[in-house]
Each structure stands twice: as structure tokens, then as C-alpha cells.
Design a protein around this nucleic acid. Structure first.
Length: 868
RNA sequence: GCCGGGGUGGCGAAAUGGUAGACGCGCACGCUUCAGAAGCGUGUGUCGCAAGACAUGGAGGUUCGAGUCCUCUCUCCGGCACCA
């Protein structure tokens, strides 16, 4: 008798039962119990609802959580909403809705869909970054960072998105010069911005990578993004002035080959020339110089990129002295030199740097060879192809360096400069400080106040009583970093700026009708009547609030702490921090962090940075938040393109669940390919998952295949089941979800085709193995057919019966000259002679050996190879 | 240019240096059905009637034995990039 398999008849029911029974409630680890914090990167709740990519990453993480829960570990598997930020606000503007209401609405929809998918979240720990209680803590942390000199405000050239009308961080600008969120071209603008001094943590952020179990690609990306390079800052006196130009170089050993110096248009010496502070002697040079600099400064990032590396520039008429050999180096200005890199000034060595060569070639500057690479070629360099940039070779034409190999020369020349006082060791980073202001409404208001009167009196936070007390505390800080120096740096810039007191938090986002961004570089909060005006926390006079908001990355920098320990500002008074150390010690760091690779240098870098700082401030007991990171691959539409509304190729999980059930969707998404790999959706392949579940359903509903009484499983099935337990128990912690499903399918094929009966106990064990992947149908069978009182998801993960796995006979493939000719069956403990005799007795083998006396190689229990 | 990750049947893919293609999709034939769908069964890398030979992007190498290790090379995907 066939029974219909219709998951929609029971899935909803069990979702409700789990909710009622609190099946997935978090229990703090008991003494001796291992903890497991399994976390998926929390979503921004978009209006489109869950897509198949969400379903994939949440299911994979859920499999891990369910597996560890059944293994008896204390599991924390929470979910929350990263709801501040541009996408939510832009969507709200488009639909002319209030972003707060829209967010609430989308969250409800996401949650409904996640429950339908059967993801085992503990909803008691749900958080939302836009909740005032939550962002009160984000603001409190901002203030902590400010007080320790890690944040300051300054007018500076920043990336600016004219579409989103806000400043951006370097990390938010993509390789093609577009904004990571909206895809529009980014410009540069001078704007007063809050700046987070992430570069002061560059070294710690590199060192911290060492012990992380992350995909190597992500580790490399972070390392390259921080981009640490050691080199030398060399000082060059400018002839006939009292000026000095400092050039950063990573190749000082080639410095005898220097023939010119190039400055970025933004370089201070250039500013002195254009302002007249330093007089240009040759009047003929003045006009072209002024024009070139003005044009370069006007150019947008895009225009600079578009010019395809053609070298342009102007001569200043000044010369710098290379004190190594007394040569005078003409000083040029060119926009190929970037102000933010190194010192914004480059010493040109055209013989051994292609860009320098191109510049020298364009302006007929001399080229000198100072290195030979192995083949002892000392010829003149006249084409770019001859420029040798490698680090293996011998130095020539370089006085005391002559004959040294490059690595030895590097040390020698650095020492020489240091001894003479001509230069100092320096480090350059690709990483830039983090622009932390957004001129937008939908974000955490920055909890700072500016007082003009105090500013005029030169008073900063560190001049107040509280600031002084905090300064004293720094002396006792267990992990001081270089915070004293950081504070000293920012103090003069930050006169007049004061943080809100903890009691004044949260500084709530005012409810307004109109919140559209302005094009003035000012936040819409400036338009809100009366919101801006406040009292100076120090002098109590009239003062104004900061009107910029924080970027959407702020809330996600610490949300995992909120899952581990419910945050509340009230705890600051008693504990000195908004969470409990005990809770953090119990759960942090995150054991499994699962998400897409697109956050490699955004969220993952920012969150690490915050934790390193909080550790130094003694606010958290660890500094690397994510022990293990695993990436999930994208799910492409059936046409191999990204799913998108405009292409009309989106698969909605709701539709799939309605037709096939959530378990089918889960099994399919786990089975289709390795978890970290990109996959293409196939509705046809989805059927395979449905068929698999239906067969299981029917096997359990059909009394022929499962013992009614105490009958035992046949030996063959019992052994096979043990192998499946072993395989799945090994594969899940390796984030291999496709192969466990394959092995369960194999087992089902065997079970079905053998016509044999499985004992009730073994049938239940099989259900347990499937439970993390297909929680609904397994629970339904477990409770309705096997009449279990409590959930399969809190049952104990099956143990392997090693005893059953010991074979008595084994199959040995027999090769002749490396080609398999037969397979023989021998006792597991058979001696080599016995195996060989058995192999030689095989006709198939004998045929290939004939009369020759073969040599052989026998790997006990594995393979036998005859060599003829 | 630099840094990562891939290339295995018609397709998605499996494979601690030890029987390449498990498992799934698709396809073919058969059973079932008034018919179709669904289901069930058998087969399915290529060439070959078969014996067998050839097959993991390409070329070499190490090994009794290589998809797996080494060298070179082609190609696709991601990241960074006038970074001094």
C-alpha cells in the first residue's frame, strides 16, 4: 500500500510544537560540557524576503547546530537583524515609507520564512541593531573609542557616493571605482568626517590572523588589504632652500640609480610652491605648474583611472641632493604619485622600476643600471622590457655596495642611512583609516556634542575631570597598546567635542516625516527642528549635536557579544561594561562563523578591529572573535546568472516549500555541491531530493521493511548502517554536507533493494542521522510512528558500534603492471602468501602473467600488484 | 602586473598516492496504466560485436601504482592594483 507523502500536512505542526516545547532553547554549558557557538552572518532584512542563497547558508549552519546539539554540546545558535544602513533606507525612500516600519515588516517576514525552513534558532536571543536598547550600546562603545583617542573628526578628502549622497570608507569602494551597495561611480570630496584609527591596529590585525582557522583565500585578502611593507624614509635636502623632501622606498639598495624625485600634487612642498611660500625661480615654469596642479586636484578618481597610466607631469625647477653620490635630482610633480601612499613623494629609479622608467622616458630623464640579474648584463637600459624589478641579483655602479647581492645590499644601505642620519626605517600600509561618518538618516546617531565656546578656550574632553580620571586609569590598563599616544595625537583636533554621558544614552533617532539625504554633505538630521540644539556637557552653555550617523557596519561589529550576553547599559554601572564577563567567557569566541566571502575586508576586518580594541580596553576577554570561518557559495539562477527581480529568474523558497516541503529544499541545497562552491539552481534536480525523502517516508510507513517486533537487522544492513554513522559523524564537522546525503541514499538503495528488514532500533538510528538535514519528516516519523515522547532533535547522536565494523573477509583488487585484472576475496588476517596464492589461482590474473615469474607488491588489506 | 581558488561523463559531482566516475539529475528500454503523469525495474564515460584499448585542461617527471605529489604550460572565476 502506498501512502502519500505530503510534507505540508505536518511541517507547520512540528514548527509549532518546537516553538511550544522550546526545543531549541540555549542552555549555558554545564561544568565539563563543551560549548559550541554556531553563528551565521546575520542578514539585512530586505523587502524581497529570503532567497535560495539565504536558505543554503542558514540550512548549512543549522545542520552544524543540530549535529552538535545531538552530540550533547551546549549550542548557541541565534539570529538577529542588521537593519540599519543604506539598503533599508533607500528601499524606504523608494516606497515612501518609514524605514523603521518597513524594517519591522521585513523582519516579521524573514522570521516567518526561517521558521518554515525549520532553522533551529533560539528566538529568545533575537536582536535588532535598530532597537534603541541595542544601539545605546553601540553609541556607548563609540564613546569609549573616542575617549581613548581612536576616533576623531577632521575635514579630509573622502570617497563620496553622489547617488547615496554620503561619504564612504575605502573598503566600500569596489575595484572598478563604484559603491559596493548601489553600484554607482564614486567621487572624492572634502568633508568633515569622523575617522576611526584602524591603522593604529594594523600590526595587531595582521598578527591575529596567524591562529585563525579561516579559508586561506580570506586570510590572504585581509593580509593584502592591510598591505604592510617595510622600507626606508630617505630625506633629500632641496637645493637653495631650507626644505627637505622625504621619500618612502622599499628598494633603497637601488638608490645609487636615482635620477629624479616626483611629488604628488597634494604634497606639502607643492602647496608651498602654489601658495608662494617658496618662490619659483624660473618664471617660465610657474604657469604650467599652477595649471597642472590645479587640474590634477580637480580630477575625480575615475578620471585618474581612465587615463590609462600615461605619464604626465611638470618640472618645479628645484633639485634635491642624493647624498649617497652628491647627484642632483630634478624635482617633478605628477599625479601618478598618490598622496596617501608612503610620504606622497617618490624617488625615481628608472632602471629598476617600470613606472619610473616610463616617467623618465616621457621626460627624457637619465636612466642608470645599478643591478644585474644573474646574466651579468650591464648594458644601457633603453626599453621598458629591460627594466629589472626582481629582488635577486648583484649591485653594480653603486660605490660601496658594488658586488653585493641585493638582500645584503638592502641591509647595508639601510644601516648606512641610519648611521649618517639621512633616513629612518619606516613601514607603509595599504590600509587607510576608516571613514566612520555617514550623511544619512537611517543609522546610529553619533553621540557627540560640539561646543564652540569650549573650543575657543581650547578645552577638550581630556581637560575635563572625567577625562583626567580616565587618563589616570590608562596608567593601570593591563593592555595599554599605544593609547596614550593616540590621545595625544587627537587632543588638539578635538577641542570643543564632548561625548554624551552614559545616562543620556540612547541618543534616539528622531521620528521624522522627511529623511531624504541632502546633497550638501550634511546629514538630514541637520534639518530636524530643534534636534541639533543642546547643552554643552562641560560648560553647560549652548552647543550642537553631531548630525552624522554611523555606517551600517557599526552594529555588526559586536552583535555576537549581544547573543552571548544580553547587553544593557545598566550593567555599565556595576560591571564597567554592558555585558557580563561570565557569559562572554562561556560562549565567546564564535566557534563556527558561516557566511559569504564578500565580507573579507569589510565586516570581518571591522569586527576584528573592534574586538582587538575592546580587549585592550579590558572590556572583552579575547581579541579574535571568530575562531573558524567557513564560506558558503552563491546560488545562481537556472540561467546561470545572479538571481534578481529585474531578470525575473528568482526562485522563492516559499513556493518551493509549498510544493515539495522544507526538508526537500534543505536536502537539495545541501546535496547539490560542496558547501563553499557556487551552484546553479535546478528545479529538475530538486525532484531527486523529494524522491529520496518520499522513499524514506514509505519505508517507515511500510511495515514490511521495519521490524514489527524484536527482529534484528540483517548483518549486511547493520554493518552498512555503522559505516553511514561513521561517515556522517566525520563529514559534518568538515562542513561536508553533500557526501553524508549521498551515503544515506546509498543505504536506502541497499535497504530497499535487499528486501530485508531493519530492526526498529536501526530504523530510528537512521532517522537520527537524517534529522539535522531533514528536521520535519524525521521528527514526524519519530513521534507519530515510533511514538517517542520527546523530540528527535534532542536525542543522543548515534554511537558507532566498532565491533560491527570489523570485517572477516575483505576484497583485494589484484593488479598486473598497475592495471586491475581481478578482485579476490580473502580472510581479513590472511598472510601475504595466502593472498598471492589466491591471486595466482585467478584465471583472469594468470592470463596476464602467463609463465613469467612476477615480482609483486602487496599493501596488506588494500591492494596486490604483480610486475611482469 | 600581484595574490587566491578552480578545470573529472550529456549535467551537478565522488574518490586517506591503491578498483576513476559513488550518489543525484537527465536519457534509453521494459513493467504498471484506458491514456498521460507518478512509481517500479534494467542499462547508461568514449571507441569496439567482443577481447580489450583509451579516458580526470595540455606537456613532462617521481612511483610497483598519480585525478591526487613535483616542474612547465593553457584556461576560467574571485580579490587587489600607477602601493613607490
Amino acid at each position: 500500500m502506498k501512502i502519500r507523502f505530503n510534507p505540508s500536512e505536518f511541517e507547520q505542526h512540528w514548527a509549532e510544537v518546537w516553538h511550544k516545547e522550546k526545543t531549541y532553547l540555549t542552555h549555558n554549558p554545564q561544568p565539563g560540557q563543551e560549548k559550541n557557538f554556531t553563528l551565521v552572518m546575520f542578514p539585512y532584512p530586505s523587502g524581497a524576503g529570503l532567497h535560495t542563497g539565504h536558505a543554503r547558508v542558514y540550512t548549512g549552519t543549522d545542520v552544524l547546530a543540530r549535529f552538535y546539539r545531538m552530540q550533547g554540546k551546549a549550542v548557541l545558535h541565534p539570529m538577529g537583524w542588521d537593519a540599519f544602513g543604506l539598503p533599508a533606507e533607500n528601499a524606504a525612500i523608494k516606497e515612501k515609507k518609514n524605514p523603521n516600519e518597513l524594517t519591522q515588516h521585513n523582519v516579521a517576514n524573514f522570521k516567518r520564512q526561517m521558521n518554515k525552513l525549520g532553522i533551529s534558532y533560539d528566538w529568545d536571543r533575537e536582536i535588532n541593531t535598530t532597537d534603541p536598547e541595542y544601539y545605546a550600546v553601540t553609541q556607548w562603545l563609540f564613546i569609549e573609542f573616542f575617549k581613548h583617542g581612536l576616533l576623531y573628526k577632521k575635514e579630509t578628502p573622502v570617497y563620496y557616493c553622489p547617488h547615496c549622497k554620503t561619504g564612504l570608507a575605502q573598503e566600500e569602494v569596489q575595484g572598478d571605482g563604484t559603491h559596493e551597495r548601489c553600484g554607482n561611480a564614486v567621487e572624492k570630496r572634502n568633508l568633515p568626517q569622523w575617522i576611526f584609527r584602524i591603522t593604529s591596529y594594523a600590526d595587531k590585525l595582521i598578527d591575529g590572523l596567524q591562529n585563525l582557522d579561516w579559508p586561506s583565500g580570506i586570510l590572504e585578502m585581509q593580509k593584502n588589504w592591510i598591505g604592510k611593507k617595510d622600507g626606508l624614509n630617505i630625506d633629500y635636502p632641496v637645493q637653495e632652500t631650507s626644505e627637505t623632501i622625504t621619500c618612502f622606498t622599499t628598494r633603497p639598495e637601488t638608490n645609487f640609480g636615482a635620477t629624479f624625485v616626483v611629488l604628488a600634487p597634494e604634497h606639502p612642498f607643492v602647496q608651498k610652491l602654489t601658495s608662494g611660500a617658496v618662490k619659483i625661480k624660473d618664471k617660465a615654469l610657474e604657469k604650467p605648474l599652477m595649471e597642472y596642479v590645479a587640474a590634477a586636484l580637480r580630477k575625480t578618481e575615475r578620471e585618474r583611472l581612465a587615463e590609462e597610466k600615461k605619464k604626465t607631469g611638470v618640472f618645479t625647477g628645484f633639485y634635491a641632493e642624493n647624498r649617497l653620490n652628491g647627484k642632483l635630482l630634478p624635482i617633478w610633480i605628477s599625479d601618478f604619485v598618490l598622496a596617501q601612499v608612503g610620504t606622497g613623494a617618490v624617488v625615481g629609479v628608472p632602471g629598476h622600476d617600470t613606472r619610473d622608467f616610463e616617467f623618465a622616458h616621457t621626460f627624457n630623464l637619465p636612466v642608470t643600471r645599478v643591478v644585474t640579474d644573474g646574466d651579468a648584463d650591464e648594458s644601457l637600459i633603453v626599453s621598458a622590457a629591460q627594466v629589472y624589478e626582481g629582488d635577486k641579483g648583484t649591485v653594480i655602479n653603486s660605490d660601496f655596495l658594488n658586488g653585493m647581492d641585493l638582500s645584503k645590499a638592502l641591509e647595508a644601505i639601510i644601516k648606512h642611512h641610519e648611521e649618517k642620519g639621512w633616513g629612518t626605517r619606516a613601514t607603509s600600509y595599504h590600509l587607510r583609516d576608516w571613514i566612520f561618518s555617514r550623511q544619512r538618516y537611517w543609522g546610529e546617531p553619533i553621540p557627540m556634542v560640539y561646543c564652540d565656546a569650549c573650543a575657543k578656550n581650547g578645552i577638550s574632553f581630556w581637560d575635563t575631570k572625567e577625562g583626567e580620571e580616565q587618563s589616570l586609569r590608562l596608567n593601570k590598563a593591563p593592555r595599554p597598546h599605544n593609547l596614550r599616544q593616540l590621545i595625544a595625537d587627537v587632543q588638539p583636533l578635538m577641542v570643543g567635542w564632548f561625548p554624551l554621558a552614559t545616562e543620556q544614552l540612547p541618543l534616539t533617532l528622531p521620528a521624522v516625516k522627511s529623511y531624504e539625504p541632502t546633497d550638501t554633505g550634511e546629514s538630514p538630521l541637520t534639518q530636524v527642528e530643534g534636534w541639533k540644539d543642546t547643552q554643552c556637557p562641560h560648560c553647560k552653555g549652548a552647543a550642537v549635536r553631531e548630525t552624522d550617523t554611523m555606517p551600517n557596519w557599526a552594529g555588526s561589529c559586536w552583535y555576537f557579544l549581544a547573543f552571548a550576553s544580553k547587553p544593557a547599559l545598566g550593567k555599565v554601572k556595576t560591571d564597567g561594561k554592558p555585558w557580563r564577563d561570565g557569559d562572554l567567557l562561556a560562549w565567546m569566541p564564535v566557534d563556527w562563523y558561516i557566511g559569504g566571502a564578500e565580507h573579507a575586508v569589510l565586516h570581518l576586518l571591522y569586527a576584528r578591529f573592534w574586538m582587538h580594541v575592546l580587549y585592550d580596553l579590558n572590556l572583552v576577554p579575547f581579541y579574535e572573535p571568530f575562531t573558524r570561518l567557513r564560506n558558503v557559495g552563491m546560488v545562481l539562477a537556472e540561467d546561470n546568472r545572479k538571481m534578481s527581480k529585474s531578470l525575473g529568474n528568482v526562485i522563492n523558497p516559499d513556493d518551493v516549500i509549498a510544493e515539495y516541503g522544507a526538508d526537500t529544499l534543505r536536502i537539495y541545497e545541501m546535496f547539490m555541491a560542496p558547501f563553499n562552491q557556487e551552484v546553479t539552481w535546478s528545479t529538475q534536480s530538486l525532484q531527486g531530493a523529494y524522491r529520496f525523502l518520499r522513499r524514506i517516508w514509505q519505508l517507515h510507513n511500510n511495515s514490511d521493511k521495519v521490524a514489527k517486533g524484536d527482529e534484528k537487522s540483517t548483518k549486511e544492513l547493520a554493518v552498512e548502517l555503522q559505516k553511514v554513522i561513521k561517515k556522517i559523524t566525520q563529514d559534518i564537522p568538515n562542513v561536508k554536507f553533500n557526501t553524508p546525503i549521498a551515503s544515506m541514499m546509498e543505504f536506502v538503495n541497499m535497504w530497499e533493494r535487499s528486501g530485508n528488514v531493519l530492526s526498529k532500533g536501526d530504523a530510528m538510528v537512521f532517522l537520527q542521522l537524517l534529522a539535522p538535514f531533514a528536521p520535519f519528516v524525521t521528527e514526524h516519523i519519530w513521534r507519530s510512528i515510533y511514538a517517542q515522547a520527546s523530540s528527535i532533535h534532542n536525542s543522543k547522536w548515534p554511537k558507532i558500534n566498532e565491533h560491527l565494523l570489523v570485517d572477516t573477509t575483505i576484497l583485494i583488487p589484484v593488479q598486473v603492471n598497475g592495471k586491475v585484472r581481478d578482485t579476490i576475496s580473502v580472510a581479513v588476517d590472511a598472510d601475504e602468501e595466502v593472498v598471492i596464492a589466491a591471486a595466482l589461482a585467478s584465471e583472469k590474473v594468470a592470463k596476464w602473467i602467463q609463465d613469467k615469474a612476477p615480482k609483486h607488491i602487496y599493501i596488506p588489506g588494500r591492494i596486490l600488484n604483480f610486475i611482469v
